[in-house]
C-alpha cells in the first residue's frame, strides 16, 4: 500500500505486525528532515505532491518490488506540507522470509520513489530564503 499524508508520520503507529508466520525479516527505511543541505542551514521543508499520479506511481513501485524480490508485503507512506527538522518525510516497510530480499526491496522502493513519484521538496532556510530543489531530471 502506498499512501500520501499531510499528518505527522508516527512510525510506532504504523502496522508492524508480521503478515504470516513465514516472515523472518522486516526492513524499515525512514527519511527524516535534517537541518542542513549543501552548506545551507535548513529551517524546515515543504513538500508538494501531485497526489493522483503519486499514488499510481508509488503503488506501481511497490508492485514491482513484490515481483522483483521474494517479499511478502511492502508499504510506503510519504508526507506532504510543511515539515519541521526531525520529522519523518517518508517511511518504507518490507516483510520477507529472508534478510537479503527484505533489504534489497526496501532499497529499491526508496530509490524508485525518489526518482519517479511526483513529489517536490522546497527548502526554507534560516536566512529566510527558500528554494525548490533541482531534481536529477
Amino acid at each position: 500500500m502506498f499512501l500520501i499524508t499531510e499528518e505527522i508520520i508516527l512510525p510506532n503507529n504504523i502496522e508492524l505486525k508480521f503478515p504470516s508466520s513465514k516472515v523472518g525479516a522486516k526492513s524499515i527505511f525512514e527519511g527524516i528532515v535534517r537541518d542542513n543541505n549543501l552548506g545551507k542551514s535548513v529551517k524546515k521543508l515543504e513538500y508538494q505532491c501531485y497526489e493522483e499520479l503519486a499514488i499510481k506511481e508509488g503503488s506501481m513501485i511497490l508492485k514491482e518490488a513484490v515481483q522483483k524480490y521474494k517479499i511478502d508485503d511492502a508499504f510506503c507512506i510519504h508526507r506532504t506540507g510543511k515539515l519541521e527538522i526531525g520529522e519523518t518525510a517518508v517511511f518504507v516497510r518490507v516483510f520477507a522470509a529472508h534478510r537479503d530480499d527484505s533489504f534489497q526491496a526496501c532499497r529499491y522502493i526508496i530509490d524508485e520513489v525518489k526518482k519517479r513519484v511526483p513529489i517536490w521538496k522546497k527548502e526554507i532556510y534560516e536566512s529566510g530564503e527558500s528554494d525548490w530543489l533541482k531534481g536529477a531530471g
Binding site: L53, I110, K114, P118, W120, K121, W132, K134
Partner: peptide
C-alpha cells in the same frame, strides 16, 4: 507530461476537458 493523471508525450493530441500537468524533475524522499 501527464494527461488525465497518466504519463503522456509532449506530442499527444489534447482532447476537450483534459487535465494537463507539466511535471518538474521530482525531489521527494
Amino acid at each position: 507530461i501527464a494527461i488525465n493523471d497518466s504519463f503522456a508525450s509532449w506530442e499527444s493530441e489534447l482532447q476537450d476537458k483534459d487535465k494537463l500537468v507539466f511535471i518538474p524533475p521530482v525531489t521527494g524522499g
